[in-house]
Design a protein around this nucleic acid. Structure first.
Lengths: 290, 290
DNA sequence: TCGGCCATGAAACATTTGTTGCACGAACTG
DNA sequence: CAGTTCGTGCAACAAATGTTTCATGGCCGA
């Protein structure tokens, strides 16, 4: 009974529509126009909204070759399923495997970090991005584990502002860069407890130089947040385990870059395309194949 | 809106998740990871696939403030309803035009990435950690934006296994390291579309050398996943915006390090303490004050 | 006009749905 | 160790769902 379905259920419906009885046409049009509700609401609900008889839906389904409304709805549901990554059945497997201690540790971490992401305030990020947008130059600082965040931010920002962004200490001792801070520039400092002396020094230098200071930290009381124009908070200790979590900081960095990029408009887009073309020309990437 | 902050039902679920009973956590994770099916399939169907009791779904809904499963599902279906009269692309645009357009972009990103974290399979991470635990030496590879992930992993692993971990190309040309791969060693390669040639070469070298290959990628079809002993998947494209998201990869890296550490037992703990003492002695960190 | 046919709505049907009461067991408390 | 709470699976429940049946009424050909 289940045919290979060369057409999507909606197409089948539209094709068969003209040859149907009047009332079934009305119902069919209603389903086609409200296919989302068709998959979620009950048949009786739909009938009430469409001003038709519930039985009409069953008859419509049978009229276009399905065994009943349930089967039609199932087809519609599968047709509009997002991201056809994996069928329903195979996705459940991974979690189910028992009370393994290691697996539990991992899922606990993901749970906590997933919730932690949602608690990050979005407003300050948008404001900080505006500050980055108008900055003539952007310095980025992060030591120890925060270095990875700093480098990601540096990488993404340089994709569309290649010669205005650099990591403090990236091309020599930090001290050389500290003296280069100027008003109108922006300095980003990333850090969490325990705070490194070096990052605090950078923050203080930025403050004294009159540069816009953006702190990405786990607390407003963090020393590098003193005097900062923008403080972007994340939860480093939210997840169980032994090391503080950088997931929040990474998410902030990526959002910061994304918003700054969108503020950059067509100019930024053009720069990004140029960069991509250059990378492709250097055949950095593996070419896509069908 | 009387409430200060209105979360989507999925967000509420993810926030409440960590504080729920174990069985309800499992069910909650399942719902969060399969929210589309949650809106379309019946409660009993879901229970069968998730391997849980149908009643657990009702209890989950009540635990997070709904009157029952029906109400939770209604909220979920409304949350993922496509706005009428406008296709997706148009809707995305129009939403980014208000005064808070940037803020909306950020919250959308966090929401998507928060959901993406829960879809990461935990089991393979635990297995990969066991492989790392027994590896005599660990090599880590990541290029371009993935370099930051590689460096974080390198940093955290070296905290308790300082002389067995290193980044490929960290001390000279990559080619020198490729020849050093041996059986009994582990090679971690991180990458997502578009894949760099360099990372694929490292993966192939590891495979040929008989080393344990661990791929952290966005697809099982990624070239560096060919022949890999462990493939850890994350969603790079899940979040709106212009750059792929590294949040999932970072979360995986951190979990990998955490589990490997816990497998290390007291020996690893001792090593970590030694490292901390040494850093404190060098007064790297700002001393805590009351 | 009659008789067959079909479309249509209302009501009765068997199923499936979400829910709830209950019992058992583990974990915690005094 | 007893007493309590809490989490959990099972089974029965009422409500709802989709389907079917039946009666009605309009339409067309004889």
């Amino acid at each position: 009974m289940a045919e290979p379905a060369k057409f999507s259920p909606l197409s089948e419906l539209r094709i068969a529509l003209p040859s149907l009885p009047m009332r079934l046409q009305e119902v069919g049009r209603f389903v086609a126009a409200n296919d989302y509700d068709a998959t979620t609401r009950s048949m009786r609900d739909l009938a009430a909204v469409a001003g038709a008889d519930p039985a009409a839906f069953t008859r419509l389904a049978k009229a276009i070759g399905y065994s009943g409304w349930d089967e039609l709805r199932a087809a519609l549901t599968e047709a509009r399923r997002p991201s056809q990554l994996a069928p329903f059945s195979v996705r459940a497997k991974s979690r189910r495997h028992g009370p393994n201690a290691d697996v539990a540790l991992v899922t606990d971490k993901f749970d906590a970090e997933s919730a932690g992401l949602l608690r990050i305030p979005a407003q300050p990020i948008a404001e900080a991005a505006r500050a980055l947008h108008v900055a003539k130059r952007i310095w980025i600082t992060g030591y120890r584990s925060c270095r990875s965040v700093a480098e990601l931010l540096n990488y993404e920002l340089r994709l569309f502002r290649p010669d205005q962004v650099q990591i403090v200490g990236g091309s020599g001792p930090d001290d050389l860069d500290l003296g280069a801070f100027r008003p109108g520039q922006a300095v980003i400092v990333i850090g969490f407890l325990p705070y490194t002396h070096a990052s605090v020094r950078v923050a203080q230098a930025a403050y004294r130089a009159g540069a816009t200071l953006i702190a990405i930290a786990d607390s407003v009381a963090a020393p590098m947040a003193e005097g900062a124009d923008h403080v972007l908070l994340f939860e480093a200790a939210s997840s169980p385990g032994f090391f503080p979590s950088l997931t929040g900081a990474i998410a902030i960095a990526q959002s910061l870059a994304a918003v700054t990029f969108s503020l950059g408009g067509t100019a930024a887009k053009k720069r990004l395309q140029d960069t991509e073309v250059r990378l492709a020309a250097a055949s950095t990437y593996v070419s896509e194949k069908g």
